[in-house]
């Protein structure tokens, strides 16, 4: 659905996006992760045919962003950090305006926006001036605007940045509800919690280059290493030690819980569990979820290390 090859954007002497190659399929939500100024917005603007690539190419929903900009824009819904609403209009007027720009009739637009506004809990505010909306409401309305033409591709550029936690939660829930098999979503963010919550694919962009592009699980596994399991016992385990099998390592412990890093869980876990239950009452044995934050930091550290080695 979204395909880029060596996509590059150079502004004068500054390379904002450097040979970015991405492939996002239908139904996928890709998180484009990176710090401020990493090149996320420039990438989104190229994918929505607002900026022309300096080199490389990109196809969105089968259309070339350089040669078929109008077709690309018909296929793409974009939500930017700045919602860009007109303060003197109300929600209906605003959405009808954008709907008309896509060539729809007023009645058709109203038919389309009614369920969307309802879904996002905006129905009762549709006659209120947009200037009086809260940040969360504005961003939700902007989301409806981006969806008015039912685009198969959604580009969300830092949709929750500079928002209070409650508003951010509302918008995240809304985004989550929009994903389906036919829709491809790219979410640009530097919020790792958001990416973890919403996305199944991760690309980390730094200084314009993609430094990592994997599925969420792959990212966690490859960058944080072997999975960690927490064994919780009924009684306190202070001062208790085990003769652990090869490939298993104790990494942490507290009163009644011991953490083990297991290289090959499918092989080593049954052995480990048998060992643990031989003498003690084991309450639970489960994998400790790896946080994306750890993975992200792992990636950044690895790059720093590689750069230093060079």
């Amino acid at each position: 659905m979204i395909e880029t090859q060596e996509l590059t954007k150079i502004f004068d002497d500054f390379t904002a996006v450097n040979h970015v190659t991405l492939n996002v399929h239908s139904g996928q939500i890709l998180a484009l992760l990176g710090p401020n100024g990493a090149g996320k917005t420039t990438t989104v603007r190229m994918l929505s045919s607002i900026l022309r690539p300096s080199s490389g190419w990109a196809r969105v929903a089968g259309y070339d962003v350089y040669t078929q900009p109008s077709e690309v824009r018909k296929m793409v819904g974009v939500l930017t950090e700045h919602h860009g609403l007109y303060g003197r209009m109300n929600a209906d007027e605003y959405l009808i305006f954008f709907g008309e720009l896509y060539g729809y009739s007023r009645s058709h637009i109203l038919r389309k926006i009614n369920p969307l506004l309802e879904q996002l809990g905006m129905d009762q505010y549709r006659k209120k001036r947009l200037g009086e909306y809260s940040k969360g409401m504005r961003q939700k309305l902007a989301l409806v605007r981006a969806l008015i033409h039912e685009p198969p591709v959604l580009l969300l550029d830092e949709p929750t940045s500079a928002m209070d936690p409650e508003s951010a939660r509302i918008v995240r829930t809304a985004i989550k509800s929009l994903s389906n098999k036919e829709r491809t979503i790219i979410l640009c963010t530097h919020n790792l919690v958001e990416a973890e919550e919403l996305c199944d694919q991760i690309s980390i962009i730094q200084e314009g280059s993609i430094i990592l592009n994997k599925s969420m699980q792959e990212v966690k596994n490859s960058l944080v290493g072997s999975p960690v399991f927490a064994a919780k016992f009924v009684a306190s385990m202070d001062g208790k030690f085990f003769d652990l099998p090869d490939g298993v390592q104790m990494v942490n412990r507290n009163e009644s819980t011991i953490y083990f890093k297991v290289e090959k869980p499918t092989i080593q876990n049954p052995v480990l569990i048998r060992l643990l239950t031989e003498k003690y009452d084991l309450l639970s044995f489960e994998e400790v979820p790896i946080k994306l934050e750890d993975a992200y930091m792992g990636a950044i550290n690895q790059i720093k290390k590689n750069n230093n080695d060079e």
Partner: peptide, 14 residues
């Protein structure tokens, strides 16, 4: 300056 130009530019208008 008000940030409302980008949504307009994202429409298929020429």
């Amino acid at each position: 300056e008000r940030g409302s130009i980008e949504p307009l530019f994202n429409t298929p208008l020429l």
